Computed example of a mutant assay.
Amino acid sequence: MAMEDLTTKKCVPCNSKEIEPMTEQSANELLPQVPGWNLLSEGAIMKLQRSWKVKSFSKGLELFQLVAEVAEAEGHHPDLHLVGWNNVKIDIWTHSVGGLTENDFILAAKISALQVDSLLRKKTNA
């Protein structure tokens, strides 16, 4: 049976009584559905993390604006980091439960679906 595409799902309210952090095994099972994202453990908190190199500081802010629009529509908000002038890092986790939920994977999938190529630095062959 095929799994439902995460981009077609909607985040559930994080204050729901039924929402609980998932196990590392469950997170690893969903991870292939969000290519480019990595599992990260900080203390006892599992997070999804992804990084990009953007063309400029202002392109990083443009990327944040695109992500903000998705986050607002989903009612689920990631931690956004612009380090240096062109290194963007996004951490996603459900703060209210102190770990990962399906919401985090839904948001990651929707962020990954954004058209951001025009904001990113081109890879150079070294």
Rank of each mutant, 00 (worst) to 15 (best):
D104K: 02
K53Y: 04
T7R: 07
W52T: 11
W37K: 03
W52Q: 05
L48A: 08
S112A: 11
A27N: 04
F64K: 10
E42H: 13
V12C: 03
F105V: 05
A109E: 01
K123L: 07
L63I: 13
K47Y: 10
S112E: 03
L48K: 08
I106P: 11
D91Q: 05
Q65K: 07
S51M: 06
H81C: 06
V116R: 00
Q25F: 13
L30K: 09
W37D: 01
I92Y: 02
E18K: 11
K9H: 06
A2K: 15
I111Y: 06
E18Y: 09
T94V: 14
I90Q: 02
L40H: 12
L30Q: 03
P32K: 01
L6V: 12
H77Y: 13
P35T: 02
F57C: 13
A2E: 09
N125R: 06
M3C: 06
K17F: 02
V83C: 03
Q25H: 14
A2T: 15
K9S: 04
L39H: 09
E42Q: 12
V116P: 07
P21T: 02
D79G: 10
L114V: 12
S58G: 04
K53P: 12
L48T: 15
S26P: 08
T94M: 04
N86A: 09
T101E: 01
M22S: 03
E20D: 02
A109P: 15
M3N: 09
V34S: 05
L66D: 07
K59Y: 12
W85G: 14
H77V: 10
T8V: 14
W52S: 08
E20R: 14
G43L: 06
L61H: 04
A73Q: 08
L6G: 05
L119S: 06
W85C: 07
Q25V: 13
S41C: 11
K122D: 00
